[in-house]
Design a protein around this nucleic acid. Structure first.
Length: 266
DNA sequence: ATGCCTCAGCTCCTGAGA
C-alpha cells in the first residue's frame, strides 16, 4: 500500500496538479522503485475550501474515494483513496477546535490519520501556545487510538523539523519556529508512543526537504525544511519498504510551497 | 527590512503561511 502526504496550499488552485500527480507514477524518477503504480491513499492539507465547495465529483470521476473536513480560507484536510474509507473521524475528539486540521479513516485495516499541525508563528506567541496545546491533545488521543488500532499511520504537514538534517541553515534557524526544542519534544513524544519516521529508515541524500519558501528563489537555492512527515506504527514498521520525497511537483507552474512525501508498505 | 511570494476574501489591501 502506497501512502502519501501533500500540503497543496489551496485545492482550488492545485486540483489539476493533484489529479495529474495521482494519475502519474509518483516514484517513476526513483530508480529503486519496485513497481509502477500510483498512491493508494493521499493525505491533503490546506485545502482552504468549505465542504460544500470541495471538488468531490472530480475525485470520484478519477476513481477515488474521498473524505474531507474543510473550512473557509484557512486549513482544511482530506483523504483521497483508491480503496473505501471507513470510520471517518474529523479533528481530535474531545479537543475543542474551530480549525479543520485532522481527518482519519481506516483503509485495508490500517488506521490513517492525516493532519495539518499548527504553524505556531513564533515562540511566545498565542499561536505557539495553541500549537503546544494542540500537540498535547494529539499525543493523548493517538496514545489511546493506538490501543484500538495498532496498525496506524500518522502523516501530514507537521510544521516541525526533527533535527539539523531537516534544516537548510540549522545554525541561523536554531530556536525559530519549526526548529524549537519545545516543538521537537512534542514530535519525539509522538515517536515514543511507538512510531518511526519513515523517511529516516532509508538512505537519503543530504539536504532533502519537503518545503521551500516562495520568496528569494528558495527552491532553486535549496533553502528548505523537512516538515512533512509519515510516521508508521511499530506494528507496520516491518512492512515499510520505501520512503521518498517527490520534488517534481515543486517545479510545476504555480506550485505549492510543499512537495509530496511517499511511503510504501508491502 | 515584522520584507522578499502566494492565496483567500467583506478583494486593489490585509492576514497568514513557515
Amino acid at each position: 500500500m502506497r501512502l502519501a502526504t501533500w500540503n497543496v496550499n489551496s485545492l482550488g488552485v492545485r486540483l489539476p496538479q493533484v489529479l495529474e500527480w495521482l494519475s502519474s507514477d509518483p516514484l517513476a524518477s526513483d530508480p529503486s522503485t519496485p513497481s509502477h503504480t500510483g498512491v493508494d491513499v493521499l493525505a491533503i492539507q490546506e485545502t482552504k475550501t468549505t465542504d460544500d465547495k470541495f471538488p468531490l465529483n472530480e475525485f470520484i470521476d478519477a476513481g477515488f474515494h474521498v473524505a474531507f473536513h474543510g473550512q473557509k480560507t484557512y486549513n482544511g484536510v482530506a483523504l483521497v483513496s483508491k480503496h473505501p474509507l471507513e470510520n471517518i473521524v474529523k479533528n481530535i475528539p474531545g479537543f475543542e477546535d474551530e480549525m479543520a486540521r485532522v481527518i482519519s479513516a481506516t483503509v485495508n485495516g490500517v488506521r490513517i490519520i492525516g493532519a495539518y499541525f499548527p504553524n505556531g508563528q513564533g515562540p511566545g506567541s498565542d499561536k505557539f501556545e495553541y500549537k503546544m496545546r494542540w500537540l498535547k491533545a494529539l499525543h493523548d488521543w493517538i496514545r489511546s487510538e493506538l490501543i484500538v488500532t495498532p496498525k496506524m499511520v500518522l502523516m501530514g504537514d507537521f510544521n516541525i523539523t526533527f533535527d539539523a538534517r531537516d534544516v537548510w541553515d540549522p545554525v541561523a534557524l536554531e530556536g525559530t519556529i519549526h526548529c524549537t526544542e519545545e516543538e521537537r519534544i512534542h514530535l519525539r513524544g509522538l515517536i515514543d508512543l511507538g512510531f518511526t519516521d519513515a523517511f529516516r529508515e532509508f538512505d537519503q541524500t543530504e539536504k532533502n526537504y519537503s518545503w521551500w519558501d516562495y520568496r528569494e528563489f528558495a527552491f532553486k537555492r535549496n533553502r528548505g525544511l523537512r516538515i512533512d512527515h509519515i510516521l508508521v506504527s511499530d506494528q507496520l514498521r516491518p512492512s515499510l519498504t520505501q520512503c521518498v520525497i517527490d520534488k517534481r511537483p515543486r517545479k510545476n507552474e504555480r506550485p505549492s510551497d510543499h512537495t509530496p512525501v511517499i511511503a510504501n508498505l508491502s
